[in-house]
Design a protein around this nucleic acid. Structure first.
Length: 581
RNA sequence: CGGGGUGUAGCGCAGCCUGGUAGCGCGCGGCGUUUGGGACGCCGAAGUCGGAGGUUCAAGUCCUCUCACCCCGACCA
């Protein structure tokens, strides 16, 4: 490509709107241009990078038996209604909805589980066809509440998404393992350091889920990491260790007056006990009460009990209750249910769903509310004094909490999620009737997995990891061009002819070459070469040409070398060594 | 949706407080000189000052509303 005619010019100054290096450099190098909030055009140079990333993804997905296809971006709302995500609060307004001329409700695909499952329903009949792995590289649209950070979080974006179809949970877990390994190879080949972590599955549902995280201070996710044993997890769903078991001989229940002491902090100080020796009561109401949920009530009230030194993670609580949306309960609601705010107690509660954190079981003789204004109870024990409807991990993990594996103190890092994989189970298959006939001839729901990589976000992360003060420094495998050829020749001179000839030779040997044929001064050209960041820079000038040489410089190296122009092979060898092409 | 910030030429910005002929740098076009790390000189083109309404003899500047973009949060993969 001749730089003189390249569509997409470099910017000499930093655009005011860009703060992140990847955003700033992508704009300055002419890779992307904004069209609206969170919506970007990929200019030719940026598109070349995307295509090279996609090539790596295709190779690795094909290598594990993936079959590439293309699913529609516009989808009938019925599919989303069938799985419940159309009405669920979780994707909510991020799911863009519209109607066609006949008034039929449609959505823009923000992900393709529904379509993949619907297609599987049509295509998969027998266990003999399984397993299957389909994938696509498609544009998604999510009407994000807040796009940010250039390509880090956008509304329209390119995603590689894959769906595994299996006969059994074991086979699903196996496919998950293959894809996990393929993801590690993809990121490795793209030159990106990622950290796989345990994740919450959020609106996707399912149990097992991992995110591939790029550690970056501008990331929007917080990871909890254990330096001692290497465990890492997304803070939003992370488990924590419970600390030493505090169970002792159970003492008789007794009521104590605690007038005016309503918070855990207060009560613990007043009664001279550790906060971990108290029980905290937190209340929520279901956003859609009354449905066929577990629990004996129809008030929608949820009573969460957790050890006093911990906090409730609402997402975990919601997931433990089967994905119900929860809102904090106001005091009047509690009073109406016969509870005493500030002194509420799980002891003696009826007709309200009580869910206890696992931490509660690891201790005894707790201080809890007495459900009477101004009184608490000492020596509350489970299950002697109250029996939770459900015991689950609903604790919020925080910096400094003990590691669930080794007990050491957890630290935090910010990170960007570049890939996310889920074991979905049969949720989608059951909702849409995607079944196969097993060996006994019985219709059985498919076990599915879902696997995503944000291609543009991956490109942004690569730029975050590979740049310096002058510009981008592409890993050779994803660079937009292998060679940036700088001609410092005057017009209509033998040097210019030599540069043209070299450009032609490099191209015909299969290299991707960006040829700076503009009548600019050397400084301008070198700075643009540094900005665009091709791995190899070749410079042809009168100075080198009289020696029959060309200057060879790696973007990542400080110094240049002289290489003879003829014969060409040594030069080509050197370029190939540097670019891997 | 809450909090904060910014909208003036293609880009980066000043001018606004204290109302009175719209500026600077870069870029862009022409001519000349220069030619290995963002050259120099001369000439030139380019602006509904985000939009609407208001106050005023007069609004880029003051007031009201509104839109867009950026950052933090909520939310989210």
């Amino acid at each position: 490509m001749r730089l003189s005619h390249l569509f997409g010019h470099t910017l000499r100054e930093n655009p005011a709107e860009a703060e992140l290096p990847s955003h700033r450099l992508a704009l300055r190098a002419g890779l992307i241009r904004p069209l609206a909030q969170g919506i970007y055009a990929l200019l030719p140079t940026g598109w070349r990078v995307v295509r090279r990333i996609e090539t790596i993804i295709r190779q690795e997905m094909d290598a594990i038996g993936g079959q590439e296809m293309l699913m529609p971006m516009v989808q009938p709302a019925e599919l989303w209604q069938a799985t419940g995500r159309y009405q669920a609060p979780s994707p909510g307004t991020a799911l863009a909805r519209f109607q066609d001329r006949a008034g039929r409700p449609l959505v823009l695909g923000m992900t393709h589980e529904e379509v993949a499952t619907e297609l599987a329903r049509q295509e998969i009949r027998s266990y003999r066809q399984l397993p299957c792995l389909i994938y696509q590289i498609q544009i998604k649209f999510r009407d994000e509440p807040r796009a940010r950070g250039g390509l880090i979080r956008v509304r329209e974006f390119i995603m590689k998404d894959a769906y595994s179809l299996d006969a059994t949970p074991e086979d699903m877990a196996g496919a998950y393992g293959y894809i996990y390994a393929a993801y590690e190879r993809i990121f490795e080949r793209c030159g990106l350091e990622v950290l796989p972590v345990e994740a919450a599955s959020g609106m996707m549902g399912g149990q097992v889920s991992h995110e591939f995280m790029f550690l970056n201070e501008h990331g929007e996710d917080t990871l909890l990491r254990c330096d001692a044993c290497g465990l890492a997890a997304n803070a939003e769903g992370a488990r924590i260790g419970l600390g030493p078991d505090r169970r002792e001989v159970e003492l008789p229940l007794e009521e104590v007056a605690t007038p005016g002491h309503e918070t855990i902090e207060d009560v613990a100080r007043f009664l001279q006990v550790d906060r971990a020796q108290t029980l905290k009561a937190v209340f929520f109401v279901r956003a859609e009460p009354g449905e066929n949920e577990s629990g004996p009530d129809d008030t929608g009230l949820v009573f969460a009990v957790i050890r006093g030194d911990l906090e409730v993670n609402v997402d975990k609580l919601s997931a433990a209750l089967g994905g119900t949306a929860l809102e904090p309960a106001a005091d009047p609601v509690l009073r109406a249910a016969g509870l005493t705010p500030g002194y509420a107690s799980p002891v003696g509660i009826r007709d309200i769903t009580v869910i206890a954190d696992e931490s509660v079981l690891a201790g005894s003789n707790y201080v809890a509310g007495a459900n009477v204004e101004g009184y608490h109870l000492r020596n509350v024990n489970v299950p002697r004094d109250f029996q939770p409807d459900l015991v689950a991990d609903i604790a919020l993990a925080r910096q400094g909490d003990p590691c669930p594996r080794c007990g050491a103190s957890l630290g935090t890092s910010r990170a960007i999620e570049v890939g996310h994989i889920f074991q979905l189970g049969t949720r989608y298959a059951e909702a849409l009737g995607a079944t196969y006939l097993n060996e006994e001839g019985r219709a059985t729901p498919l076990w599915m997995g879902s696997y995503g990589i944000g291609v543009g976000r991956l490109m942004a992360c690569i730029m975050e990891q590979h740049h310096d003060d002058h510009g981008l420094m592409w890993p050779p495998a994803v660079a937009p061009y292998d060679v940036h050829l700088v001609s410092l020749a005057r017009p209509d001179t033998p040097v210019e002819q030599a540069a043209e000839a070299l450009y032609a030779d490099l191209q015909s040997s299969g290299l991707a070459v960006l040829y700076d044929d503009r009548p600019e001064r050397a400084g301008v050209k070198f700075n643009d070469a540094d900005l665009i960041g091709a791995p190899v820079r070749l410079t042809l000038s009168p100075r080198t040409h009289v020696e029959g040489e060309v200057e060879f410089k790696l973007r990542t190296a400080p110094d240049a070398a002289r290489v003879p122009l003829a014969p060409l092979d040594p030069l080509l060898g050197r370029i190939r060594k540097a670019t891997g092409n």
